[in-house]
């Protein structure tokens, strides 16, 4: 770890004033500190936002919820309103990391966690995301955790967040405070940027922006929500692929579907063509198989992620079977119905 200045503030304007290119916000620190110890991130100044007021509560706003950026993953997953109305979110969070990490990890930090590409973590390796312009050692290397879609020639890394995948399917948005004090909200699907030729820039945030909250719209009545995460061990591992599914079946036909996919792209992935294929149809294995084919038609950008195509296809089928009642919930997988 390199030495750094530590700026702790109880006032958000003051915190924002301390931010900039060479500074980093620290919230739970569960990702940032690991990266600093191995010098993948070397901020000159840390701005501790954990003393800021008003960022630690989950507040109702009519049928919607406003989740403060400092709400811990444990707090959020356990909140009774979340468990009743947005169980998908609770399940996704609990499918991630460990209890100890979730106790520290925050909502804002989770959205902004960095990729798990092993070359990003190893300073002896070329990596455009860590050190722009150095190249991408993952290409031609061990690439099992890389992305399938949305990559660029400069970077093939995947975003690992389970929570962000669920929030995307739930059509949440991110509340951001600019240094000027201006507040804006950005929908989840516009919050992240593809890697393009600058994979080091991952979101629409400016260096002195602060994420202040996540806004959750009211749950859709009559839908069933399910989160299906497949990983290399039963717990405490990042997803190989994950599927967040919110589906409403009415009169034997799929009336609504909102799907998002995790760990297969530089950000939570969406593909509306799949939803369009499903809506209006009666749930069947054949329909789901076709949806899976459509979702995974593009070739893998790295030979080591070729397996993610069949795995994603099959995981989508499993999630849809559960969400539409074609199969019982798998053990360890939770599906909950939102009352109509």
């Amino acid at each position: 770890m390199r030495s750094f200045d530590f700026h702790q503030s109880g006032e958000i304007g003051d915190a924002a004033g301390a931010l900039g290119r060479e500074a980093a916000i620290i919230a739970g620190g569960t990702n940032l500190l690991d990266l600093m110890k191995i010098q993948v991130m070397t901020p000159e100044r840390l701005v501790d936002i954990t003393r800021l007021d008003g960022l630690s509560a989950i507040e109702a706003d009519g049928e919607n919820l406003r989740i403060g950026a400092l709400v811990t993953n444990t707090h959020l997953a356990g909140d009774s309103r979340i468990r009743a109305g947005w169980p998908l979110l609770s399940r996704a969070i609990l499918a991630g990391a460990s209890a100890q990490i979730r106790n520290k990890a925050t909502t804002g930090g989770n959205l902004l966690q960095r990729t798990r590409c092993p070359y990003f973590y190893d300073t002896s390796q070329a990596c455009n995301k860590r050190a722009p312009g150095t190249g991408c050692a993952a290409q031609g290397g061990a690439g099992r955790m890389l992305a399938l879609f949305g990559t660029s020639p400069d970077c093939l890394a995947a975003h690992p967040s389970d929570m962000a995948t669920a929030l995307t399917a739930l059509q949440a948005s991110v509340e951001i405070r600019a240094a000027s004090g201006e507040i804006r909200t950005v929908p989840m699907h516009e919050f992240y940027r593809g890697p393009g030729d600058s994979p080091d820039i991952e979101t629409v945030l400016a260096p002195d922006d602060i994420v202040t909250a996540v806004l959750l719209p009211a749950p859709r009545a009559g839908t069933k929500q399910t989160y299906r995460k497949v990983r290399d061990r039963a717990s405490y591992a990042f997803a190989l692929v994950s599927v967040a599914a919110i589906v409403k079946v009415e009169d034997g036909r799929i009336a609504e579907a909102s799907l998002a996919y995790g760990s297969i792209a530089p950000h939570p992935w969406m593909n509306h063509a799949v939803e369009e294929m499903l809506v209006g149809q009666a749930p069947s294995d054949d329909l789901f198989a076709r949806a899976g084919e459509a979702l995974t038609a593009a070739p893998a950008p790295h030979p080591d992620t070729e397996y993610k195509r069949p795995l994603l296809r099959r995981t989508l089928i499993a999630a849809l079977r559960e969400a539409t009642g074609l199969s019982e919930s798998a053990h360890g997988v939770d599906t909950a119905r939102i009352p109509a």
Binding site: R228, V230, A234, L311, T315, I317, A318, H331, G332
Partner: peptide, 9 residues
């Protein structure tokens, strides 16, 4: 063994 996802418990 999950016949869809290949998870083994």
């Amino acid at each position: 063994v999950n016949e869809w996802t290949g998870e083994v418990r």
